[in-house]
Design a protein around this nucleic acid. Structure first.
Lengths: 200, 200, 200, 200
DNA sequence: AATGAATGAGCCTTCATTCAT
DNA sequence: CATGAATGAAGGCTCATTCAT
């Protein structure tokens, strides 16, 4: 991202980002079209290159922004006192679902990012974003452990990784069964999860 | 597919198909590159068009071939006498896992196909392939029902659809947890599944 | 045609159109080469696609432009008072000849267009252009009839069609006898024409 | 043409030539497709290259054959005693029309050849074929002059050239007015022609 | 800084011609 | 000699990126 972009008025920035998110939500990285973004944001194609070095740079910026927004929407959970792990876990997933419902474009965008194949140009995005998300939860969990709200015997990184992937699993499942009611499904899922943990 | 391709020596056909599967396993339809396939198969770019009308025709042929191979690898299950549905279901998933392990390229390819967005050129592939697979299992299940090996009260199509989506879910899960032992995971999954059915 | 083309400087537009007319005057539609046009106009191949959607769109634009130019060069005849039909007819042909002499490239181009075979991509151009030209003369003749300068008993459309085809015949003849003096030939032709009308 | 072609059975030769004439009657030189000829003649594509050096060589062979056939169909006129030039001229045109009616494919083919643009690969075919045809008539006319059946004051070459182009003019006219009865039209045309000669 | 025209690499596809069997 | 698979040059078109205003 170039400094030029930051100097833009909030409105312009917002319109531009919405257009860009929309484009990368509808098309994967290779298929996404800079011209279409410019058109949709009602700016000149050349302006995009005043704001960002190139397509890749814009894409990575969007990823970072989307993750930040999602994490901000979730982080407040960790501010509250949570008596046990299951309680916390449920809230995370609940919040995840809520965010996806309220931000369908971002949700599609982030799903696309997670599906992006290993690729010479972008590197292994899947791994990259996984690590990023895991790191976020790891910090949250560590904070909880410091407050003795989560068992300190559990490895924070492992648990973080587990939470991240689990949430992805829920999203994937809902994509496959789009008619399923998310809230009811989440409940069933958590029940299964609870039972599964007991079994294993 | 053109007759020219069928007349090719088995070796040439194999090398070509491997190259093509590899390409469409690494890249989605739009990003896949005919030139790269030719290079990888050590033939001239023009030769590809002696074998197939165009990119799309090649792609659809590959889909059909991959599905056929997978179904052949699985169909033998239905020849044996299976005492109950759970037994059969377990074997299907077991066989699915085995096939994916033994044919990693085909597995990636079919996964890509299932992820292909709805698209003017290709139509709704996701729906198409889903129907194709469902039909296959529907026939198998109907045969079992004729032999009274599966409860005839169950609607064959619904059950078939369920099996297909369920298998896809397992594959997806294993993609997310690549380090998990597939066999152990399958067992856990099936146990959950059994319990889930009791619960719901 | 895209707006980009219209915004170009007159000089650039002129050079481009000259190159394009030249190309389609030397080669038929299928053989005409976008790369050659770009080279001749000293622009990048891609620029052609900034100006026009595709080859066909460019071709149709050129046809329309050429017809317009020719019609403009001829239309002033109808502003003058012409005492009789033969007088008018002679002037039309005279003007046609003059235009072809002064615009040899356009003449070749329009001849090529009229020779273009019926074709899935372009449709029946011969019929299309014939209709276009006939319509132009039809209007002119109707105006003359309104001023009582041409016998109102004559069907304007039929006469228009006759004029168009007749002019095409003259052009064809001159193409076959390139050394013939056009003016002298036109006179002979008109004399024959006059006699022919008396005979038939 | 290669000797291989001559050694072919008459039937095979005929089928091949018919296919080739058909192709070059339907498409101009550049658009004509060797593969389509082979397919139509039910031989292998490679065989075409056993018979002819290349596309150009085949094309020129076809031109020569078609001209020969047409000339043979007409030449018998000159064997008969014709009292005057107009008589002969009428018979030539009559015979030309007859030939075109009986050999529609050859007629289309030869028309295409005459319309072929100047072209780096083929050279100026229009001029070439014109000269060829002119030479033929020139010889015929000279023979008539030797028998004192045509005025020896007339330059044989000029008259020959005139005859050739005149016939082309008739063909062109009939193409533009396809509903016109050729025989009736020819009569009108010749009457005009006779009058025209008196005038000039 | 904004604009949008200019660029050219890259892709799919066609087809005359060659070559191995 | 027949066959038809193999070849590769060429052409239309797209689009990220640069550049001149």
């Amino acid at each position: 991202m170039k400094p030029t972009f930051e100097k833009l008025s909030t409105q312009k920035k917002t319109i531009f980002l919405e257009s860009a998110f929309q484009e990368f939500a509808l098309y994967d990285y290779a298929q996404a079209n800079i011209g279409r973004i410019a058109q949709s944001a009602q700016i000149a194609k050349g302006s995009v290159y005043q704001y960002f070095e190139d397509k890749k740079s814009l894409y990575f910026y969007l990823i970072q922004q989307a993750q930040q927004k999602k994490q901000q929407a979730i982080s407040h959970i960790f501010q509250e006192k949570n008596d046990d792990f299951f309680n916390l876990f449920e809230k995370i997933n609940q919040q995840n679902l809520l965010f996806d419902e309220q931000n369908p474009v971002l949700q599609k965008f982030l799903y696309n990012v997670s599906q992006e194949r290993h690729n010479e140009e972008l590197g292994n995005l899947h791994e990259k974003t996984l690590k990023q998300s895991t790191l976020f939860f790891q910090k949250m969990i560590a904070q909880q452990q410091a407050k003795n709200l989560i068992d300190t015997n559990i490895d924070a990184q492992t648990l973080a990784f587990f939470v991240v992937n689990h949430s992805a699993g829920i999203a994937e499942f809902l994509k496959i069964f789009p008619n399923e009611n998310p809230q009811i499904f989440l409940k069933k899922w958590l029940t299964l999860f609870e039972k599964a943990l007991c079994i294993s």
